[in-house]
């Protein structure tokens, strides 16, 4: 899948020239780069990809990955092989709010399967899909480290724990009413227990 995305069919080198990160993002990237010894700036790649994803509507396009490579002075393939390894990086467009429901172990023991089905029905989409209005993408993920407050879902930086159908309604309705994008890098996380 990956090779096709980064292949000649979809990648447009001209488009890369249009990529612009905000001043704030570039400043943050410089700060991150300063954490490592001279010549080891590749270490910044994962934190920088998080910023890049937030700057690019929640996903990493081939052009954005190329741009990141130029920021860190590494080869585009070094960026792509990392972006495609880690589950938190989206290589396709996603909705404004990516709902990630934990499906593992204790979350399963406490009803995660039903929570997933409930969200699918509520939003009229299947796992992996995005609502037609571009508001929500539904994903299932492995253990989020919230087993004592299972079932759990993550939206951007926020953890929503001890889920019931009623809580899901309340949380998703709130996100829809606000209508804004949620990123892992958000400072204003709003966990609910």
């Amino acid at each position: 899948m990956g090779a096709q995305i980064h292949g000649t069919l979809e990648f447009n080198a001209e488009k890369r020239k249009d990529i612009r990160f905000s001043e704030e993002a570039l400043k943050e990237i410089e700060k991150i780069k300063s954490r490592y010894p001279q010549g080891k700036q590749k270490s910044a790649l994962i934190p920088v990809l998080h910023i890049a994803q937030a700057e690019n509507d929640g996903w990493l396009s081939p052009e954005v990955m190329d741009y990141v490579a130029s920021l860190l002075n590494i080869q585009p393939i070094e960026v792509f092989e990392v972006a495609s390894f880690y589950t938190m990086f989206n290589l396709k467009p996603v909705g404004k709010c990516v709902i990630e429901v934990c499906r593992t172990s204790s979350c399963w023991l406490l009803g995660a399967e039903d929570i997933i089905k409930y969200i699918e029905k509520k939003l009229g989409i299947k796992e992996g899909q995005t609502t037609p209005d571009g508001m929500f993408t539904l994903k299932t993920v492995e253990c989020l480290g919230s087993c004592g407050t299972a079932p759990v879902m993550q939206v951007g930086a926020s953890y929503h724990e001890n889920l019931t159908f009623e809580k899901v309604d309340k949380i998703l309705d709130k996100y829809r009413a606000e209508g804004r994008r949620r990123n892992y890098t958000d400072l204003d996380y709003e966990n609910t227990k």
Partner: peptide
């Protein structure tokens, strides 16, 4: 340093690889 979703990075040498900006 934040990771990006990979159980394997809890293994110490995988963690080091990840911290170096690799898979």
């Amino acid at each position: 340093q934040v990771g990006a979703g990979a159980y394997i990075c809890g293994e110490e040498t995988a963690l080091i690889e990840s911290l170096e900006g690799k898979r």
